Simulated assay, not measured.
Amino acid sequence: MPITFFRHIHMPDNDLITRISPDEILTDFVEGFYVFKAQDLSGRQLFFNDGYPVVALMQQREGGMRINVNGKTVNIGNAWVCGGMLKNIYCESSGDTAAFFVIRFHPATFFKLFNIRENIFEHNSVFDLMEIAPHDAKLFLNDFYSASSVDKKVTVAADFLSRKISAIAVPALLGELINHIEKNPHLTVKDLSKAYGVRLNYKWLERNFKKYIGISPKEYLLLKRFLNAYRSLDALSSKTLLEIALDNGYCDDNHLIKDFRIFSGQSPKAFFQDNRRA
């Protein structure tokens, strides 16, 4: 998703984001349905994912989205999937991008729901919805774009996902860990091991993160740490870069700059100068 989406989802009173809770049958799979009014989406926008895979649909069926991956432009259509570690990927809209409908999935159950490999995002972090639902995505999109209101679109999406549910068993401890990380985004793998003591060993942690989430625990924690640092920088805080780095679990500002270059291809200073100039 455009990184501006994550600027808004943690602001409950923000009028650019509407969150609709999923029905009980979907709560183990879907974190929430969102309508994102992308009024500030213009020019090149950094694409990012916070570890929770999403399916995003543009407002108009005839719309489309282009992404730039290390200088190569790729068309991903009006409905796409996004997840994993997005590095130096930017989006360029075409057509009407006044709003997106976003389905945000719990990471531990997303892959099982669509019966896809957990490493699917390893080499391709953004792709067309048809690639993971080739048999029923076309019918879903027909129904979705025929729906005349947000409530009806939610119903269409819920019906589409409900038909995919089967008996999916995820380790309870993994769910606990994900919730713990959400509440404490500055943790390290060592902190997790210490917090859970004898209940957790590193081999189990590494194996189950890759099995159910598709990335390592270290990579998952990196996404959280970077996103929180990005929010602090974007908020025009009076704090120095070093203070923001330390507040968000980095050992110094050089490590934050290094991560910023990995995810955006630019230093924090250059990135925000370009965005504010735009």
Rank of each mutant, 00 (worst) to 15 (best):
D253V: 09
N68Q: 12
G51R: 02
K269H: 11
D96G: 12
L200G: 07
L86G: 10
E31D: 12
Y250K: 00
I9W: 06
L177T: 03
P171I: 01
L236D: 14
K164C: 10
D136F: 10
I89R: 03
I25H: 12
I178L: 15
M85K: 12
V154M: 02
A270G: 03
L241W: 00
S267V: 08
A245G: 00
F209G: 05
G84H: 04
T109H: 00
R19L: 10
C91W: 02
K203D: 15
K239I: 00
F111T: 05
L223Q: 04
K164T: 11
L227I: 05
D28P: 03
L236M: 13
F5S: 08
I132L: 08
G77I: 01
S21V: 08
D13C: 08
F36D: 07
E182S: 14
K37E: 13
L46V: 14
L174N: 09
L256H: 03
K218V: 12
S148K: 14
L205C: 09
G265M: 02
A167H: 14
V30F: 00
K211Y: 03
E131P: 07
R231G: 06
Y90L: 07
N75D: 15
S21E: 15
N275K: 15
S264Y: 02
S193R: 14
H186M: 12
R66N: 14
K138W: 11
F144E: 10
I116V: 15
F5W: 05
N119P: 07
D234T: 09
I9Q: 04
K210A: 11
